[in-house]
Design a protein around this nucleic acid. Structure first.
Lengths: 350, 350
DNA sequence: TTGTAGGCGTTATCAA
DNA sequence: TTGATAACGCCTACAA
């Protein structure tokens, strides 16, 4: 309990307990069983008296487990990343691990720097959420470095564990919901899905479904700050002269935000134009009308990521594991057509 | 550039460069100047060839700066905390520091655990954002531990550096804006401001201003999940039979969210009842009408926190420094009365 | 300007 | 079941 300015060391504990440092070390390294009950008692007492805590730097230096987990994120302000981080942090806390957080600002160069720094800390595992272009350093990491878990499918050619959304199920749920509510002309809005990634998986599923069911559909792949392209697409879909009802499916929360912002600016009413987005956000229920979303079980995903990391050591040189979670549909006004008498007309055919 | 599985050590660099470890150490410890140009060249070359990076664990173990900054947050999902963290992370990255993130879930016990863990990592500084009750461990930390910066005024009796919003200016700006827009009956909604804290500072300023200017005012101090109290207060303020126009001032972003949610549920239209909140959030422009806010310069605050931490060593045993930032008013529809002809009636008196 | 030696706190290897 | 001792990679006197 005493709190001297300098933390106690294993040696001091050993002295007070009247045993060797080796024994104290064993006590704290999971070999407690090998110690006699009497010795355990004395070590416990001495440690408590001194407020002893093992020094993770010394441990890590010696080559043991560092007790550090890294999390690399493209944009720390992205609510999805934050939500995952919450789950990750919880899991770390339970396991006595510490979490090193890095933000790459979507810049491969920064990413490389951060990766180097983290590996110099001898992290035991790394969780990556970054949908953009990746640095070679990450590939290096995947082969040479500590266990890795991806939250998006970005290094698919590289055999890495992944945890995330069941993209097929998510797109299916979204489309089913839209059809069910009477929308039949679909616009899918996504950020550019270059290379493999969850963006690509979602887009592919969307296109496959539309093809199979012969749905009238369109895809807008754009950077979100390109207001012009968004506006154009919105005008096109809102002004078509078909009787079919249009709806927009947003690939993630950022997209939903951008789309809804422009809809408001252009005076388009969600509901008339259906709107559904992947990712639930605080404000989706506060808009008028509320926005229908597919909520990801972010806490579960975060915890699964840590579990995956920790189990990786036991799965050395094994095939990568892909773990996916089913989202949860939250239906709101944005997928509720305003004229009621007609809401299922496209399904009246046998 | 070579990437062996085991990272290079200072000794290997020294051997390849044909110099002693000491020189290499100096090269990486800011004593580069003391080395001859020739030696600098050789070390640089050798280090590059081996892909050498100093091992922070060894550095920290030796007692030197660990290169670690801790950030302790009560709720990692709080957008304000995240915004600050973004600034903090940027500053860390620039300085080559790593960021250890901990979430206490508003639980003093967890906080204590996290604090112990961080201090075992020999963090060079700690940034704390936690408005709730604090553990004694934090007080300990403040006196014995590494430099500390508070983002809320919670340990005011303890002489700790603080960085944050200029609460007086913020409240003044909010009240001035409301008066200017013709609102004269004010309701202040806050979470319980137990003990000293920015919550308390804001509330006090609100009360002082209302007293000085003899403004009709009321205060609701409540936990945000207590829907009943919120609803009651909203009903009271919206149904009063005075001619004066009512407005609500929300003490922070969480409060704004809660209040607006209930207003929508009760069918109250923001604007008729004025609504302004401290903290800007993504969605404030998306609601109908948009919500007027006071945006905090979160990036600047985060960076200032790091700067404060780093300068603390030079300010050993000096008085604490309080650094505060002026917010930025973003006026939107929620403080725009709907009937126009009458919008300044309370100010028509000389 | 450069090098040598010892120690930071821990764990692993060996011996008792 | 215990203990002595040598690393781990680095920095900091001190010496040259």
């Amino acid at each position: 309990m005493s709190s001297s300015i300098r933390p106690a060391t294993i040696l001091e504990v050993a002295r007070i307990a009247g045993v060797s440092k080796t024994s104290v070390s064993r006590y704290y390294s999971g070999e407690r069983e090998r110690l006699s009950a009497a010795m355990q008692q004395r070590i416990f007492a001495a440690a408590k008296q001194l407020g002893y805590q093992p020094n993770p730097l010394a441990r890590g230096l010696k080559g043991g487990p560092s007790g550090l987990i890294g999390m690399l994120v493209a944009d720390i302000r992205n609510p999805f990343s934050v939500a995952i981080m919450h789950g990750v942090e919880q899991a770390c806390r339970q396991a006595g691990l510490s979490l090193l957080v890095c933000n790459s600002d979507n810049d491969p160069q920064q990413e490389q720097q951060q990766l180097a720094l983290m590996s110099s800390w001898r992290i035991e595992g790394l969780i990556v959420n970054a949908a953009g272009r990746h640095s070679d350093a990450l590939r290096q990491f995947a082969t040479n470095g500590p266990p890795l878990v991806l939250l998006d499918r970005r290094l698919a050619d590289l055999q890495v564990d992944e945890v995330g959304l069941d993209n097929v199920a998510a797109i299916d749920m979204a489309i089913d919901h839209l059809l069910d509510r009477g929308y039949s002309r679909l616009l899918y809005v996504t950020e550019p899905p270059a290379q493999a990634s969850s963006r690509k998986a979602r887009l592919e599923r969307f296109e496959a479904r539309c093809r199979d069911q012969k749905l009238s559909n369109d895809v807008l792949s754009t950077e979100l700050d390109d207001q012009g392209r968004l506006d154009t697409a919105l005008e096109v879909i809102s002004s078509a002269d078909t009787p079919s009802r249009p709806a927009i499916l947003c690939a993630n929360g950022q997209v939903t935000l951008a789309v809804f912002r422009r809809m408001r600016a252009l005076g388009l009413h969600a509901g008339d134009i259906g709107l559904i987005g992947i990712d639930e956000l605080d404000w989706c229920e506060l808009t008028d009308p509320g926005i229908t979303t597919l909520a990801q079980p972010t806490d579960a995903i975060g915890k699964a990521a840590i579990a995956c990391l920790r189990s990786r050591q036991a799965r050395r040189n094994t095939e990568p594991r892909y773990q996916s979670f089913i989202p949860h549909l939250i239906a709101r006004g944005s997928t509720q057509p305003t004229d009621i008498f007609d809401s299922h007309h496209h399904e009246t055919l046998p």
